[in-house]
């Protein structure tokens, strides 16, 4: 353990080696093993992992289309100079704004209250 004692110097929880450090490690391990924490983690990962996969695939699809299917992306929409590729690109902006907004709302409603409750629990027992 000696190599990791002062991992984050200055943190209140990173006490001197010995007593307090061991008990804080136990507290963290306890909270991490609790069903409440597991539920929070499930809810959180259930959002971030699928959404990350989604936007990465969506972005990659756009890039692959642009690189390998010029026939599709260069198609002009209704005789204007706006192409299908440009519209796809603009949709990337829309989806990015939407995901950022949805995630923020989700985190504030579904994650923050439980996270701060668990935080209080940890810090009270340290």
């Amino acid at each position: 353990m000696s190599t990791t004692d002062d991992a984050v110097p200055g943190f209140p929880a990173a006490g001197p080696p010995g007593g307090p450090q061991r008990s804080s490690a136990e507290t963290y391990a306890q909270v991490q093993a609790s069903p409440e924490f597991a539920a929070l983690r499930r809810r959180w990962r259930g959002f971030i992992f699928p959404v990350s996969a989604l936007f990465l695939i969506w972005f990659l699809a756009y890039v692959l289309l642009s690189a390998y299917a010029p026939g599709i992306v260069n198609t002009r929409v209704g005789g204007s100079n706006i192409t299908v590729g440009l519209l796809f690109g603009l949709l990337q902006f829309v989806s990015t704004f939407a995901i950022a907004t949805i995630y923020s709302r989700f985190a504030e409603k579904e994650l923050d209250p439980e996270a701060s409750r668990l935080r209080a629990e940890v810090e009270d027992s340290l």
């Binding site: 804080s24 924490f37 935080r119 940890v122």
Partner: peptide
């Protein structure tokens, strides 16, 4: 070499903010 696994601590801290230098405003 390493006797203790600090992953539980890191995971709890990273998800809840426990033990971090900053305080939530309301508390």
């Amino acid at each position: 070499l390493v006797t203790a696994d600090r992953f539980p601590e890191m995971e709890v801290r990273s998800m809840t903010g426990a033990g971090s230098a900053g305080r939530p405003k309301q508390r």
